[in-house]
Amino acid sequence: MSDLVAEHRTRSSDWRSRPVTWLVGTGFALAVLSLVGVGLLVVRADRAGQPAFAFLQWNLFLAWIPFVLATCLAAVHHRRGPRPLLWALGGAWLLFLPNAPYILTDFIHLGRRDGAPLWFDAALIGTFAATGLILGLASLLIVHHVVEARSGRVVGWVVAVGSLVLSALGVYLGRFPRFNSWDVITDPNGLIAVVLERLADPLGNPFLLRFGLLMSVLLLGCYLVAWVLGRGILGPLNGRVTR
């Protein structure tokens, strides 16, 4: 009997160590990928004699914010932290989440800068876009894991899918009306006015509908792949936290 108890404790300890190992490994890999992108920017500036695509660094910085917030949320959850703190971190995470997939839209700048071959600029933007997308997906995996542990599988998937749809709309608001995440605080009236205008006539902007649908499907497809891979590493949840 004692051997069975010891084996159970060992397995439970191994399971609890998996998320930490996954977080550390994922964070390290994404940091390396980020440095690769910055390195490509340096190489381009050196070859072209002038900097270009500098905005990619700022966009990538913003893409890191939801990953950091999700990691903090996971730490609070692991320590059985209070729900108000989890809600605050979750709200901030959702607010900044669209910044991660937003870099995918930076491909519109491809071919608009001289000084480097088109294939190099495509690789440059692609590196930043891939890093941003993975940061967003990884952060959602973390939040999904926490929500599922706290509230169950159904709620976990509702939050995951809802977050992806809202992110797609957030990408639209960032790329076209040119709003930022902090406009919720600095320009709430302008943001609310645009949102209410779109809601008043939801079918009056076909481009928004097409963009929102396609971006939502793209993000959902990418997340399903990430979820399968992530769940294969982390394994099923070991119980549910009700606090």
Rank of each mutant, 00 (worst) to 15 (best):
V158K: 14
L164T: 14
M1G: 06
L97G: 10
R18H: 05
V154G: 13
E7I: 07
G91E: 10
L41N: 06
V76G: 13
S17T: 09
G156E: 12
A75F: 04
W119R: 14
F128H: 02
F28K: 08
L41V: 04
A48C: 13
R210E: 07
P206Q: 15
G212I: 09
V228K: 04
I192T: 15
M215S: 03
N205D: 14
L208N: 09
L94D: 14
P19I: 00
A122R: 13
P236A: 08
F211I: 12
V146L: 06
T127N: 12
H145P: 14
P188A: 11
R112C: 00
F211L: 13
G232M: 00
A116T: 08
N59Q: 07
L203G: 05
V158Q: 12
L85R: 07
D187C: 08
P66E: 12
G230C: 05
S167I: 10
A63W: 01
R16K: 08
W182R: 02
R83E: 15
Y102P: 04
L218P: 08
S34E: 01
T10W: 13
I233E: 01
W227G: 00
V171L: 04
R18E: 11
Y102W: 02
D106A: 04
V147Q: 02
L118Y: 08
E7M: 10
F207P: 13
G170H: 06
I185Y: 05
D187P: 01
Q57N: 08
P101H: 07
G90Y: 03
V5Y: 12
P98G: 05
L137C: 07
F53I: 04
L140Q: 06
E148R: 15
G136S: 07
W15I: 06
G132V: 01
F107R: 01
L191Q: 06
S12V: 01
L124V: 10
P202C: 09
D3G: 06
S216A: 15
S2N: 12
L234M: 00
S163V: 13
G230D: 02
